[in-house]
Design a protein around this nucleic acid. Structure first.
Lengths: 196, 196
DNA sequence: GTCTATAGGCAGATAGAC
DNA sequence: GTCTATCTGCCTATAGAC
């Protein structure tokens, strides 16, 4: 078949809008950026943005949807690497560290802070992100403990919450200190919490 | 001296403004409330607010200032109770749990999420809050370890960051699940991190 | 101290031409 | 798909009367 399936190198405006909006949201939050910000950066008009995403809440929902899908893919890749539980936790922390080193925080972490002001569909999507990620973490923790590679007491779901919340909080704190190293140290301390 | 030093029961409008604004900020964030919101709740006009606080950034600074002072007072009260280190950590967690049970999150935690959009004086005040609180926590942790009441490895400052960030993050996550109990469980898991 | 009135800007959003 | 033009509403802020 001569017809190439190579993705168009061309604009794909919707994706570029998501790229810009995602970065703005991860730095300034959902309430901290506007259609005007995105449009200016892409050198198009606000009206054009409305063609691709009917409103800001739809853009926000698309943002979380894509972010969650990519995050799930990252977790699946960790699953596929055949690591032991401590290795999986370390890889999990690395995802967060890379986001932070890009000057961003977790999209759903910053949206969680704005939770009470978010449109309902966005709230539901954020909740789902944490449920999914917490479930993955709890599974890793439970398996690691069963195999003797991890040591902690209590419900794996609670330990998962502590690690997940700990990483989200550590990211936010790291920005107030402009100190990436302290994030790594705090993350390391969190993992020691479960014997990793 | 016959002139009573009893504080006026009267309005004290500035304090009432701070009370309302503080609650709004702890629920919706700095970017999530307006002068109009505060004014409507107090049944005064926006113009009156400007009489007491020149602008929103000044109001925000006053908010963080009062919050930090009260928080420091709470820590001083813990110091004065003659508890052992684990008891002090438990009391520290209780402060957070009480805030959350009131449907709020830590003022400086939510401001940390909005950090990049805050006026510079507000940013500095938030940074100071975490530095002060982290210093207090690290001191408790170090003393507890020296006395054999706590067991953890590494720099007490790193463990302090893990606990502080962990509590801030756990508060934000708890709201997305409307589940106060899970905050308590996560906090408990964090304290076990240092042997408490 | 509190008000009315108003300014000036920016937000999200829509209609309709091209 | 992208534009210009426009709408409506909310925001912070100020001037000046009471």
């Amino acid at each position: 078949m001569p017809v190439s399936t190579t993705p168009r190198r061309a604009p794909d405006t919707a994706a570029r809008i998501l790229d810009v909006a995602e970065r703005l949201a991860q730095v300034r939050g959902y309430n901290g950026f506007s259609y005007a910000d995105v449009a200016a950066e892409l050198r198009i008009t606000r009206a054009s943005l409305h063609y691709h995403f009917a409103g800001k809440s739809e853009l926000g929902a698309a943002l979380v949807s894509r972010y969650t899908a990519r995050f799930a893919q990252s977790l699946a890749e960790i699953d596929a690497r055949g690591l032991d539980a401590p290795g999986m936790l370390a890889a999990f922390v690395t995802i967060y560290a890379e986001v932070l080193s890009g000057g961003r925080v977790c999209l759903c972490g910053i949206l969680a802070a704005e939770y009470e002001t978010l449109p309902a569909p966005l709230r539901a999507a954020v909740t789902r992100f944490f449920d999914d990620t917490g479930t993955w973490l709890a599974r890793v923790l439970e398996r690691g403990r069963a195999e003797g590679a991890l040591t902690f007491s209590g419900d794996p779901a609670d330990a998962a919450d502590a690690i997940l919340g700990g990483l989200e909080g550590a990211m936010l704190l790291a920005r107030t200190r402009a100190d990436l190293a302290r994030f790594g140290a705090a993350a390391h301390a969190l993992l020691r919490c479960v014997g990793a």
